[in-house]
Nucleic acid binder design. Structure first.
Lengths: 188, 188
DNA sequence: GCCCAATGTTGACGATGTCAACATTGGGCT
DNA sequence: AGCCCAATGTTGACATCGTCAACATTGGGC
């Protein structure tokens, strides 16, 4: 339902109809519409982590920085392939993420993948200030790019004729340059 | 209403009540709830552009790269200061941004500020491939950081004890390093 | 001073999230 | 085997929402 008609069309009643039960039956399984959404979003974070991992494996990265880039590409490609899901995961239907432990755990797991890879690429201890900043920067970059692509904020005119896939690679490469330690960088 | 109770609480009827008119009076001025939201979002983009500009002026940047960083800081600080507005501007209540010309124009104007500054910092022609990629990367970084901060996705544990303001500066500095031309970079 | 366009109102329809009260049913205990 | 409770589902209702159609008001230009 999410993929076909967007998050807007996901109503508790519609879900119930689709399941062939009465409109209030979902309340036996979820305390709230928010709880249902949180459960779906948690599944989304699990799939996101899987997609990132698969992308990193497929790329067979030879350096830690290359692994970070592969993870980022997996992130953005997942977002572009599942726009409604990602919108749900970060959207306003989730009032309080902390209220739903399963959601929170799934989101943290996805974050941890990026954090570990960035720390290794940097050779800095995970949890330290330097690694934390770099991790958040990496996450912000791929997250922002995903959101902009999903929301169609990036018109064709803005991206100098680049195809979407190429744009993703180039933007991520932009950051990878900064990643390759304080010294000079491998160009791509 | 946006700032106090969030975008969720903005209903056409509530707006009408607040204005002291009947519930359908807004339809004399906006064809749709979407049109009202688009008008508010357009105002939001105008304020965002103003906030970025003010930040860039206040910083008195001496290099073009410093100006880009100041714009980015203005972007993120505006988002953190006006979370509901920013959520509205990029949220799902806006079905088709292109349908509302005023909104589109305001959003493009904000984008143009970043594009011009990045192109100058790079010494590359605006609209060219290199400048386009760098602009989108810069935008994605500040946009992503804004969204993550707004949605409280960044827990205290993730940012190595840095205060919010310091985190913003450091993350933007991370990108600025890549900006300072293919050669080495000024450190902050 | 009239008239029309702008603006506002009333009443209604279908949809939604949610609640309270009631019904069904299947598996574990005696 | 037979009972009973917990899980699950249903009916009906309420307030709210976006939206529409039909009707009322009103103030400024001819």
């Amino acid at each position: 339902m999410l993929a076909k008609d967007g998050a807007r069309a996901v109503s508790l009643r519609a879900v119930a109809r689709r399941a062939g039960v009465s409109q209030t039956a979902p309340y036996r399984h979820f305390s709230d519409k928010g709880a249902l959404v949180a459960a779906v979003a948690a599944e989304g974070f699990r799939r996101l982590a899987l997609a990132m991992d698969a992308a990193a494996r497929r790329a067979r990265p030879r350096t830690a920085a290359a692994r970070v880039r592969a993870l980022g590409q997996g992130y953005v490609r997942f977002a572009v392939a599942n726009p409604a899901m990602v919108r749900l995961m970060f959207g306003p239907l989730l009032v309080q993420r902390a209220e739903h432990p399963a959601l929170d755990a799934a989101a943290r797991a996805a974050y941890a993948m990026i954090a570990a890879a960035v720390a290794e690429a940097l050779g800095a201890p995970q949890g330290g200030e330097e690694a934390s900043v770099a991790t958040i920067a990496a996450w912000a970059l791929v997250h922002g790019l995903s959101q902009l692509l999903i929301d169609r904020q990036i018109s064709a005119a803005m991206c100098g004729g680049l195809a979407r896939g190429a744009l993703i690679d180039r933007v991520i490469g932009e950051f990878g340059r900064g990643l390759a330690s304080p010294k000079s960088g491998e160009s791509r």
